[in-house]
């Protein structure tokens, strides 16, 4: 419990540090949300100055920062100039879509990577292992971008799936089954891309960890007792090989908010990706800070979850 408290305090300090860093960087970056307005002859400089004053942008950086901290404590996380709403409402809606997408892709990637990695490690050097290793090498060498474009090319050629977005026009009028089908068909490309992008790394980690464990003496001892192959792999080897995989799982959870930004932006998925892109381009400061903070929070929680899982999974951690 004390460990948990200490980790939470560390997390809070990290969040404060990241928020200060974000504000400093945004202050150093050239331009502001109102620069584009200055080019518009219909908007007077007085109006722009009034708007800047209204949002507190004419104040020094520390004042702006503390005003933002106050709004965080109120649960608003600042104000979006472009959307004219609190950042919280924007983040809640967009992060829900992003998490839905990335969680699905992460589950798929792990469900494929673990059995495949264990299976490949059980027969290293054989042709099936070689196919797996060759396949993952190919996937590792392909950037996410290439995978998305390859899928898009296929879909455009075959018309088998919708090309982008999250739902088709007239989605609200559809019945439940049709809605589910529509959502599923929109999910195929982003989920497949994200799962294939993370699969090789996960599978190689599982395989490497399992190969190392399978060569250890206690596995040989277990074999000498006549233990069956399945029990050997899943009761002895996999739990012993799990520690690096649990840490990796923590990173996967940590990347739930930030791992799909590019794919979302390309495929028009209404998640945090397009929002971050738009907000960065228009210098919508508090939205950018909000997204960065949310991603950091997920990373901290993911690592904390991994550490807690490690304590549950490995009795040695409880001893130390």
């Amino acid at each position: 419990m004390r460990y948990l408290q200490r980790r939470l305090v560390h997390g809070m300090i990290l969040l404060v540090g990241v928020s200060i860093f974000c504000f400093l960087l945004s202050d150093l970056a050239p331009g502001s949300f109102f620069d584009e307005m200055k080019l518009n002859p219909q908007i007077s400089s007085d109006t722009i100055a009034a708007l800047q004053s209204q949002y507190g942008l004419d104040r020094p950086l520390p004042v702006r920062y503390f005003r933002w901290v106050k709004s965080v404590l109120r649960g608003e996380f600042g104000y979006s100039f472009a959307y004219n709403s609190s950042v919280r409402s924007l983040l809640l809606l967009r992060s829900r879509n992003t998490i839905f997408l990335t969680a699905l892709a992460t589950v798929f990637a792990w469900l494929i990577a673990v059995p495949l990695g264990v299976w490949a490690a059980g027969q290293p050097g054989r042709w099936l292992d070689r196919i797996c290793m060759g396949g993952t090498s190919l996937l590792l060498s392909l950037p996410e971008l290439v995978l998305v474009f390859a899928f898009l090319y296929l879909v455009i050629r075959t018309h088998a799936l919708p090309v982008g977005g999250m739902e088709s026009t007239g989605f609200e009028q559809m019945d439940s089954c049709a809605k589910l089908w529509d959502l599923g068909s929109h999910l195929v490309i982003p989920v497949a891309t994200l799962a294939l992008a993370s699969l090789p790394l996960l599978m190689r980690h599982v395989r490497a960890s399992m190969v190392e464990t399978l060569n250890s003496r206690f596995i040989q001892s277990a074999r000498a007792h006549g233990i069956g192959r399945t029990r050997l792999l899943f009761r002895h080897a996999l739990p012993a090989a799990a520690n690096p995989l649990i840490s990796l799982f923590g990173l996967s959870v940590g990347g739930l908010l930030s791992g799909s930004l590019l794919v979302e932006a390309i495929l028009g998925w209404p998640g945090l990706g397009p929002l971050l892109l738009e907000s960065s381009m228009s210098r919508d400061l508090y939205v950018v800070v909000g997204i960065v903070m949310a991603s950091t929070l997920f990373m901290i929680l993911g690592n904390l979850l991994a550490d807690l899982l490690l304590v549950c999974a490995d009795p040695r951690m409880r001893v130390t």
Binding site: S216, R217, F218, Q220, S221, A222, A224, H225, G226, H236, P239, A240, D314, P315, R316
Partner: peptide
């Protein structure tokens, strides 16, 4: 197999660290 058993050199690595 049960009639032939082996005791290895490095007992630290020959015993599953997760089991009691």
């Amino acid at each position: 197999r049960p009639k032939i058993q082996m005791v290895f050199q490095d007992s630290a690595s020959a015993l599953n660290p997760r089991l009691s």
